[in-house]
Amino acid sequence: MAKVKIPENKVQELKDLCASYNNEPGELINVLHGAQGMFGYLPAEVQEIVADQMNVSVAHVYGVVTFYSFFSMLPKGKHPISICMGTACYVRGAEKVLDEFKRHLEVKVGETTPDGKFSLSCLRCVGACGLAPVVTIGERVYGRVSPEDVKGILGEY
């Protein structure tokens, strides 16, 4: 695993974040949420600092990070793409839409394009079943997406 050197001021910010939760081990998930917000992802160094501050083992922090799909140890793309795989989207062809995104971006689910522009993930139901199949890119929501639309959508970025 490549080492990333976190700048001193960021380290302090992270320690302050832990302290804002009183370094309480029960608040680990909240701290990790905050840390991911801060760095965009949770590299090993961040997890080590958090473990040290909250007085839990690094293994435990790593266990939590790998358990919850929200947490990522890889940097996300500038434009994170999520394909809804809820039931409605699925029966309306979300899988074919996903395949098309994979083909265009040449990445698998959970990966980021080499230029760091897009990352691809799946999620379960965004609560917009009437628009199925649904794709979100960043904060934007695309409804009734067909495989043919994919190229055009990517072209917007």
Partner: peptide, 21 residues
């Protein structure tokens, strides 16, 4: 929520979809 499916939906595939989840 309620999802309506017709004879064009394969029940085995639907069960598989749920299991995938």
């Amino acid at each position: 929520g309620m999802i309506v499916m017709d004879e064009d939906d394969c029940m085995v595939s639907v069960a598989k979809f749920y299991l995938d989840f």
